[in-house]
Structures are given as structure tokens and as C-alpha cells.
Amino acid sequence: MLQLNGLTKVYNTGDKALSDVTLSIPDGQVVALIGPSGAGKSTLIRCVNRLVEPTSGEALLDDINITTLGSGGLRKARRKMGMIFQEYALVERLTVMENVLSGRLGYVGFWRSLFRKFPQKDVDEAYRLLDRVGLLAMVDKRADELSGGQRQRVGIARALIQNPSLLLVDEPTASLDPKTSRQIMRLIVELCEERGLSAIINIHDVALAQMFVQRVIGLETGKVVFDGAPTELTPEVLTQIYGEEDWEATIEKVDDDAEEAV
């Protein structure tokens, strides 16, 4: 379970990216975080694993206070949080296998990782995950040879091999075409279900979010302005989050093609 208490981030420039965010996410819940660009979505999930240092407040994962951990403790805590990135953030010149295995770096020593001598059970798990995301044939391809959707699948495998209890997902579909976006979202949600993971998914596409998640949190200038089920997202709520716009089309689109099989 993830618990955020009064999490606040003020950047050196004086921009207040997060102000006093308090929320809790029980185990196994998948949450979509929506909001306009600059609302603090990325900052929020980066404050959880402290890629960005929060200014005040605390984040607790399974009752461990992440915000006060020292560097060793923080590395241990990060192992429990898999992160998936917008631009995939694979190390492009490494092979698919190395990218997936890099998810185990927190568990193996420096010299083993330097010589790529990962334990056999990690290698097996990598094979299983690559099979699950449909990339078993690509094991020794270099990451920059893959298409966008394939790279994001590798990114997912890298996050899952950490054996996390929480997934932090930053705009997983922003660089993908609509069809691939759905496939990726479906994959993430399915995997969370299989493994009982909770997840925070930053997402621009409201319709896509409604299609897949159980709970939506709306962020606006660093504050939580909505927290509820996807069905409660009315035009009024969206106007509050994003500003004035014709929202009917966005919401309705969901029901039309929700069942497109992949």
C-alpha cells in the first residue's frame, strides 16, 4: 500500500509543482493520474521513488517512509517500485536482454553486473517476461532496432523483473499510435492483475484511462481536484481539471470502440 501525506515539491525556480498531496493507494489498485501538462503528474511519481526530492511531506510504501531513507535504503526501496517511461528510456545501445536484466541491478553486485553474470533464475525470469510481452525472439537485438511499441514492452519487462509491489508509469502511450497505445495499456493492466500490483499511471488520454482503470485522480496545478471512479468523470469535472472544452465527444468515444480486440 502506498500512502502519500502532504507531499509538496517546490523547484529551485520557485515553481510549486506539488502542493500538499495526500492520498492512499491500496494493494492491487490501478490508478490513472490525469491533468494538463505541467500539473505535476510527472513530479508526483518521481517524488515517490525520489528521482525528484520532495520538499516536504512523506511517502510510505508498505509502511516504510521512503522520504527519509539514506542512499542504501533508498536503493532497496526503489527495487520495490518499477518505473515505466514515456520515451521508453531504454538504454539504446544495449541489447533487449541487457535492458530487461538491468531491472535486477538493485539485487546483484557491481562486478556481476559489469560482466553480465546475472543469476540463472534472473535470466529465466527475463525469458519468461519477454515471452509474456511477446518479444522472446528479440532477446539479442539492440534496443534501438525495435519499434516504439516493442520498446515499451521491453520497458515493461524491465520494470516487472524488479519484482515490484508498485508500478510508477509515466505517460506510457504518449509516443505511440492509438492501436499500440491500447495494447500497451491493456498489457500493463493485465500484468498488474496477474501479479496483484498497484500502479499509478500518468496519462493524457482521458478516454484511454477510463477504459482500463478502477480509479482516476485529477491533478491541477499540483493539487488533487478529483478522486473517484472513471464513471464519475463528467464534463464538469474535466472542465475543472483541464479548462473549458467540449468534453462530450471524449467521454462517449470510450463506449464505441472499447471492445476492439488485439
Binding site: 536482454m97 546475472f118 540463472q120 519468461r128 515471452d131 522472446l136 525472439a137
Partner: peptide
């Protein structure tokens, strides 16, 4: 579990040269 996966499980992995 697919056949391809079964063939690979337990196999050591080495970075291609």
C-alpha cells in the same frame, strides 16, 4: 508456456560478441 520459451529456460545467457 510456449515451446520457444521452454527451450530457453535454464539456458545461460551471454551478451552477443
Amino acid at each position: 508456456m510456449s515451446v520457444a520459451l521452454e527451450a530457453k529456460l535454464g539456458q545461460a545467457w551471454k551478451k552477443p560478441h
